[in-house]
Write a protein that binds this DNA or RNA. Structure first.
Lengths: 203, 203
DNA sequence: AAATTAATTCTATATTTATAATATTACTTT
DNA sequence: AAAGTAATATTATAAATATAGAATTAATTT
């Protein structure tokens, strides 16, 4: 079974060379022989043969034998198909399948946690402190209400400074509390796709 | 002014590398710092920086400074724009602009013509014979009618064997003649774009 | 059968490039 | 001001690849 990434790389590699792009342009006009393409591009026939084989592997062209000629033709459908694939919203997320996308978070947690999982020190850098907060947030269930006492109990598993943790959770919008200060609950995280030009809301 | 080919090559080159594709996939989820990407991809930060600069040159990503972080974000519009460009029917012909697409024909003509432009010998290979015929065909205007005598007069500029040339013109569909054999005329060539899977009609 | 032709394969070479270690730059925290 | 941090630039190196000459293959013509 082949990787999504490998397939795309083969396709883009095939098009990432000037003479191969020119061959695509020439074959878009009409099917042509290796000899004709070599003459127009002013490169050796073995070079053209090499390029055509790469284009063929990417599914962009194919040859038809005619006497001792090989007449190559463009698969316009392959280009169009890939263009649509790029536009398809499932393609980009598919590129990161099987990748360890939480590797950075784990590294930060490892740096600031001791063997028991308790916080050794609060990171000065906000970006890293947020990693810690999000990690601890997992202890709280969505839809549940927690008394301040209960919240402190849970936070105490990570640090004696429960006040800082509690306040930070609220300040960064991870948790909310009822009016006077009775009950706390975890804020639903809305999965927000990045919108071009917008500042990153997740930072 | 930059070439159409160069722009496309830069774009495809940017995407023709596994780690760069993965970066695209990761940035599609959310904007991220160089450090984060390096950690997830398990490559050096300088390597990621290098990749991001290539992606930036292709207009695929851009950075926003935040403290001493560079938060890179994907330009989803660039991907979509290129996909549409590929689908656009003007793009492929644009790749061959300024190229000597008749180079092969000229080479064939040079081989089989003498200094006066007369045919030294008829090429055995049909592909090359057609080049000769198409060249001579230019002597006839579209929409005009020519008597057989007049046709022979014109063909005689190229070869004494006017009978073979005349018959070949008709056989290959370049010219037609009226019923009994009186008048000849040049057949309008319909510019026929190649259709996938179809045998090439121009051969 | 021998010669010719187009294409491909093999081989070698020069160029490009992905990677990372090191040095430098820009910014932040103490 | 000094120390710390992230990113980039510089440099070096190993791997990938565009190119073409030579050898080979497959088909056609003489």
């Amino acid at each position: 079974m082949e990787n999504q990434v490998d397939e795309l790389v083969r396709f883009f590699k095939a098009l990432a060379e000037p003479n191969r792009l020119r061959i695509i342009g020439l074959l878009a006009q009409k099917p042509q022989s290796v000899e004709q393409l070599a003459s127009i591009l002013r490169v050796g026939e073995s070079t053209v043969s090499h390029h055509l084989s790469k284009l063929g592997e990417a599914g962009l062209v194919s040859a038809r034998a005619e006497g001792y000629y090989s007449i190559y033709a463009l698969h316009t459908g392959a280009l169009a198909g890939m263009a649509k694939k790029i536009l398809h919203e499932e393609t980009l997320p598919g590129l990161v399948l099987g990748m360890d996308v939480d590797s950075y978070d784990r590294k930060v947690l490892a740096t600031f946690s001791d063997a028991n999982g308790r916080i050794k020190a609060f990171p000065v850098q906000e970006k890293k402190f947020l990693v810690i907060l999000r990690h601890i947030l997992e202890e709280f269930e969505s839809g549940m209400k927690y008394s301040e006492k209960r919240v402190n109990q849970i936070l105490a598993r990570y640090s004696a400074d429960t006040a800082t943790l509690r306040r930070s959770m609220v300040e960064h919008g991870f948790m909310e509390r009822e009016g006077g200060g009775g009950n706390y609950w975890r804020v639903e995280k809305k999965t927000q796709p990045h919108i071009e030009g917008e500042p990153d809301p997740a930072r």
